[in-house]
Every structure is written in C-alpha cells, then in structure tokens.
C-alpha cells in the first residue's frame, strides 16, 4: 500500500508545468484526494508527478465577465464557503455538501474533481449541467473544452497528453434560476448510489426551463432537458429511464438505482423550483 517510484516535479509557473507534462506517462497532482489512493493501491503508476500546488495564480475564485472562474488548486472547502459562489453559482455549494467529508474537502480541489471525470462525482454533474468551460494549458498553448465534450467515459476526459486543467468557468445564473443537488449514498460523504442535479428557470410563477444531470447511472453524467415533461410525473420518468444505463454492483442493483432516480428527479426539480422562488424574494 505504498506508491511506486515516480519523479517529482514542482513547477513554479504554468510554462514550467506544461514542459514537465510533455514527458511520457506524467500526471498532475493537485489535492490528491482521488489520485493518492490510486497511487497507493498501485492502480496508477505514473513516471512523473507534476505537483501544481505551488501555482498560486491558480488558487483563486473570481468573477470574469458573465462567468465564475475557479482555479485548479482552489480547495472544495473554499468553494463551499466563498460568497461569490453562493451568490452566482449556488449549485456548486449545494453539490459540495455531498462531496466526501470536511477533512477531505480541506485538501481536495473542485477543479481536480472535474478533471478526474468520475461518473459518480457530484461536480462532474454540475459542470455538465451548467455547461461549464474547462480551461486547459499545454506546451502548444491554451484552449477551452465545453463540459459536454470533456467527459468521455468513466474517469476518462478528452484531455490530450501534455494538457492539464488550469481552471473551470461556470456561467453565472441570475436570481430567476434555481438549482438543487440531491442524492442517496450508503453513508453521508460516500459515493452516491444515484444522484440528481437540477436547474430550473422560473418566470411569473411558470417554469420556462428545466434541465437535470443524473450521476452514478452511466459512464458520464446524463444531462436531460425535461421542460416538455416536467409537470407530468409518468412521462418525466419514462423519458429519464430511457436515457440512463445504471449498473449493478455490490452497493445496489440497477433496478434499485432506477427506483432511486425516479424519486430523486422529482425531489431535485421541486427543490430547484422552490430555491428559485426563495432566491427572488
């Protein structure tokens, strides 16, 4: 249960980091709360570990134009308590209360969670639902990847060799939007058996937009536009069930996950609507 050998590089700047990442079989270390167990169990054995914890320019949380930018080494706990996040992208904080335990959140990073592309990850679903932009740097320059193109499969993103995620920008949602994140886990802080994030827009008491992202039920988060079915629970469930592919594992059967999703979708949409109404008043 000890990691195998690796070469350790601690760059002082992004240009230094991208040079180090050009080496074959390199991996980025940020919070390390998912990576370190993989290394300790030797499920991963990169030759080079590039520790970006010294890149202080990636530590921030800022409003940039109509987006909220979160840097690659901002810790979950900072995102969870930051007033700009609460004001502009409350879904991040609603989701983060379900992410692991406070001790893990003190070190783990929100952007790292997204880069890890865990299909059971709450923040993966948030990024997919909100249409976040993933900012990426490499020796070839910088580019942005829309969330829907970023998540390719379980623990698999569209990052190319030599690229790393420097930050993620989330669109800012004004107060006519409401959101929620609900899930069922065996114990609070564990991976969810199934979970749902919802985003609704309310205008004059009417829902004018409703989307959900379901996690832990497929290789990537499943984003579904439900505005056409959100006031008819049978049709809503039919549409949702036709688009998810939950697996059976030691924690739950596929059928049980489907049953959870049926309940959680309604709960998430109801909460999101009520949050939109309370945000306005």
């Amino acid at each position: 249960m000890k990691p195998s050998r690796f070469q350790y590089v601690r760059p002082a700047s992004i240009p230094e980091a991208v040079v180090a990442l050009q080496r074959s079989n390199s991996k980025v270390l940020a919070g390390g709360q998912s990576l370190t167990p993989l290394l300790s169990m030797r499920l991963a054995a990169p030759e080079v570990l590039v520790d970006i914890n010294g890149l202080t320019e990636l530590a921030g949380i800022e409003v940039r134009g109509s987006e909220l930018w979160i840097g690659a080494i901002a810790r979950h706990q900072e995102v969870l308590t930051h007033p700009l996040v609460g004001a502009h992208v409350p879904l991040l904080q609603q989701a983060l209360t379900h992410v692991a335990h406070p001790v893990i959140r003190n070190r783990g990073t929100s952007v790292g969670s997204i880069a890890h592309a865990d299909p059971a990850g709450e923040l993966t679903a948030v990024a997919a639902l909100l249409g976040a932009r993933i900012h990426v740097a490499s020796a070839q320059g910088v580019r942005d990847i829309p969330a829907k193109e970023f998540f390719v499969g379980p623990l698999e993103s569209s990052l190319l060799h030599g690229e790393f995620v420097t930050g993620v920008s989330f669109p800012i949602f004004e107060s006519s939007w409401g959101s929620s994140c609900v899930e069922i886990a065996r114990r609070h802080g564990d991976y969810a058996l199934a979970g749902v994030c919802a985003l609704v827009h309310v205008d004059g008491g009417l829902i004018t937009s409703a989307t959900i992202a379901i996690f832990s039920v497929a290789g990537t988060p499943v984003v579904i536009d439900v505005i056409d079915v959100c006031d008819e629970s049978e049709k809503l469930d039919q549409k949702v069930q036709s688009l998810i592919e939950p697996d059976t594992d030691i924690h739950a059967t596929a059928e049980y996950r489907r049953q959870l999703v049926k309940t959680l979708v309604v709960q998430a949409l109801t909460e999101a609507r009520s949050n939109a109404e309370s945000r306005r008043s």
Partner: peptide, 15 residues
Amino acid sequence: LDGKPVRGCLIFAVS
C-alpha cells in the same frame, strides 16, 4: 495541516 484537519495518508510530505 496549518490548523486544518487532513488525511496524512493522502498527502505527500514533499508537497
């Protein structure tokens, strides 16, 4: 770690 609880087994000392 700097006053905040963290898992010692999920952090490399060098970091």
